[in-house]
């Protein structure tokens, strides 16, 4: 490897004497760090656990929204998940699940939910998983996305690229994809730049600080599915309730 790098460098020096050190770093790619011992990073990479995995946002008696753990209802109510065929709307599903939009391939409830224990998920090899470990469940089918995710090439993140300098937080699948309707919807984009050559549309003339403070928020605003996703849409305001 060193000999190769040396001959490449020699070639570069002889072949193009004016090229200075442009691209010299590329030669370093395979020599400098390859034989160094791998040092365990000082800080951790953590994956968020969205509230959505810990229960359902249900209407509270006072008109607000409350987060209800699955066991709160399903400890008493027995449901036969496997009999339900997937439909876009499920009017036969009672309580807080009413209006749940379901559009996830050809799956039905029991493909992911454990019929024996509704507060758990069930993998393809019939293991029961707590809902908070949904990542493992999703990755059974979405292998390409899982591979990308493991290498930091899928899903948003915040923090440090250098884990020796600080920690990093990764989004969970469910942060961005509603497991019942995983496709990304349409969003209203942030306002465009106002070039000297582009006239300012009147409705945007007063734009400014309102968007600035919003830039590190949760995510773009869904313009299509705001009403459709009613049981999940209030996740931020929902309070935790322990069974």
């Amino acid at each position: 490897m060193h000999a190769l790098a040396f001959s490449l460098t020699a070639l570069a020096l002889v072949g193009c004497p004016q090229s200075e050190d442009h691209g010299a770093w590329r030669a370093e790619l395979f020599t400098e760090r390859e034989n160094e011992p791998r040092i365990e990073p000082t800080f951790d990479e953590t994956i968020r656990t969205p509230d959505r995995l810990r229960g359902i946002a249900a209407p509270a008696p006072d008109g607000g929204v409350v987060r209800v753990a699955c066991f709160t209802c399903h400890g008493i109510l027995q449901v036969e998940l496997s009999t339900r065929a997937p439909t876009p709307l499920q009017p036969d599903v009672l309580g807080p699940h009413v209006g749940l939009l379901f559009d996830h391939g050809t799956l039905d409830c029991a493909h992911c939910h454990d019929p024996a224990d509704p507060s758990h998920l069930r993998t393809a090899d019939a293991r029961s998983l707590p809902t908070t470990e949904a990542l493992e469940l999703c990755s059974q089918c979405h292998g390409l996305q899982w591979t990308d995710f493991q290498h930091g090439a899928h899903g948003g993140m915040r923090g440090h690229w250098d884990l020796n300098a600080g920690p990093r937080e990764r989004n969970h699948c469910v942060d961005c994809h509603d497991p019942h309707r995983p496709a990304f919807g349409q969003y209203r984009p942030m306002p465009p730049p106002r070039d000297r050559f582009v006239p300012t549309p009147p409705h945007r003339a007063n734009h400014g600080a309102d968007h600035a403070s919003d830039a590190h928020g949760e995510g773009p605003h869904d313009v299509q599915g705001e009403e459709a996703q009613d049981d999940e849409a209030h996740d931020d305001e929902a309070q935790e309730e322990t069974p």
């Binding site: 899903g155 993140m157 923090g159 440090h160 020796n164 989004n171 961005c176």
Partner: peptide
Amino acid sequence: RTGALPACLEACPTG
């Protein structure tokens, strides 16, 4: 240069 991610990456909702 202090090890943090650039602002545009942190803001990206799709990764």
